[in-house]
Design a protein around this nucleic acid. Structure first.
Lengths: 270, 270
DNA sequence: CGGCCAATTATGTACATACATTATCGTCGC
DNA sequence: GCGACGATAATGTATGTACATAATTGGCCG
């Protein structure tokens, strides 16, 4: 059907011929989905199968367009996407190269702990252990926020089926989110509330492993020294620091898992 | 200069006029960088500043194009990118909507431990502690690979400035990567070698915190029970499992850090 | 020989146009 | 009223064309 669509799109004859010449070279399009996607798969396939080696230079857009029998823009779109996904590196005038270093990242979901517990069929609760307002620099300091800024400090415990899973220590910038001062957090957890209130944001994360202190161990109901996953997150919105939060989770009750960021291979069905 | 470029691109008069009409609506382009980027910033700005609320419907491409005084394709490119980045949701015939749920993920870099140490000015070494070949199911089992598959098993220690940083326990599928059998790994570490050999792949990861066992603690030179970051990674290439690796790192000598996957906000300078 | 400058080449952006695709909406007929 | 069905409105894809931008290349000149 897609093939048929293409036929009707561009009066068969010419592009049909071009298609044939492409096949000669072993660069066949599979006819599934949009043309640019077919080009992506074709090119990615060459790379994944090692026919185009790392560092090697690809034919230029002009050549690829005649090779596959499509317009340069269509090739451009496909190649530009592959470049954006990290498969290729492009340099003007120099050409397009198979990326040599996989600047690989893996993606871990940032999820509300409540969602995770609920999704896994558990019963989620949270408790606010402590709540106070203070000014930055008095007793503690949040480096990325000016001294004297009013802050809301929250200590919170998240439980799944009654068992403590995660301890949360949070600071919220009251200059940036003054409404938070009036929120009792008796039904909705702070993290959830913030997600709902502050529409979009970027964040920085650090993940490490720590041994539970005596206090923390008591809260989480484990032996002191138990390994805990520590996730520190700072959220920024419109260049203003919104919240700084530190999650501590019992190692064997909580983990992060995810797949490679470039789901291209999956996407590309290769 | 960009502004000037645009002037010369499209004979000043007409688009100049369109630009003015856009300004009336408060939707001014900043004139920095490519047009589609300006559109992205303008639209993302509306969202980030809450003028376009979650779930709300945007003007269609036609309207946006006359609003900003650019062609529909340019609008399309900008909007399609924002949609890909998760800011917008698009449905044919229905329109474009501000995404309500932030399907947020954060990205952590997967880097060669050697690179990390070297980049931080340290001296990197590694030692192969144990190397043997075996068949899957004999003594241990890698679930995603058929029983009986020949495997290479490697135990490896990574050191920074002489201090153990990370312990690596790895299985390599010899059916998928037979060349690995002949590689002595006396100068290049297994992870590095595999990255170089197996061109592209996707991977699954799990991160958690564990307490060091006595053996592990001895290897890493820490007290038994010290919190360690555990990263398990399974790599797949062309639907075949390549390698299964387990990294264990001393909590306070190693951490993962990264930023939100949608670096759009950063990208967009908002 | 070395450095500067101009030609060249490859990618990047923009517009116009056309047609494809897909839901939704409304209408017609039962 | 309700379902089928076609009109319609939105996004999605593809091509042609033109020009912008960047960087390599090579030649020219000192």
């Amino acid at each position: 059907m897609q093939g048929a669509a293409r036929q009707s799109l561009n009066g068969g004859a010419e592009r049909g011929a071009a298609g044939v010449s492409a096949n000669v070279d072993g660069s066949t399009l599979d006819g599934k989905g949009p043309l640019f996607g077919q080009i992506k798969r074709a090119v990615a396939g060459q790379i994944l199968r090692g026919r185009w080696q790392a560092g090697e230079r690809l034919p230029n857009e002009e050549q690829l367009s005649s090779l596959y029998g499509v317009s340069r823009q269509t090739v451009h779109k496909a190649i530009a996407l592959l470049a954006r996904e990290g498969f290729l590196v492009r340099r003007r005038r120099a050409g397009t190269f198979v990326a040599s270093v996989r600047h690989d990242r893996f993606a871990l979901p940032i999820e509300d702990i409540g969602d995770v517990i609920t999704r896994n069929g558990g019963v989620y609760e949270f408790r606010i252990l402590d709540r106070k307002t203070l000014r930055n620099g008095e007793g503690l300091r949040w480096p990325d926020v000016p001294d004297g800024t009013p802050l809301l400090s929250l200590d919170c415990l998240h439980l799944g089926d009654g068992a403590p899973i995660q301890y949360e220590r949070r600071l919220v910038n009251l200059d940036a989110v003054p409404e938070v001062a009036d929120e009792p957090f008796d039904s909705v957890a702070p993290s959830r509330w913030l997600v709902d209130q502050v529409p979009w944001s970027s964040a920085e994360h650090t993940v490490k492993a720590v041994n539970a202190t005596a206090d923390l161990a008591a809260l989480l109901g484990v032996e002191p020294g138990t390994a805990c996953l520590s996730i520190r997150r700072q959220t920024v919105h419109l260049n203003r620091s919104i919240t700084l939060v530190h999650f501590l989770s019992v190692g064997d009750r909580f983990s992060l898992s995810g797949s490679s960021i470039t789901d291209s291979a999956t996407e590309l069905n290769l």
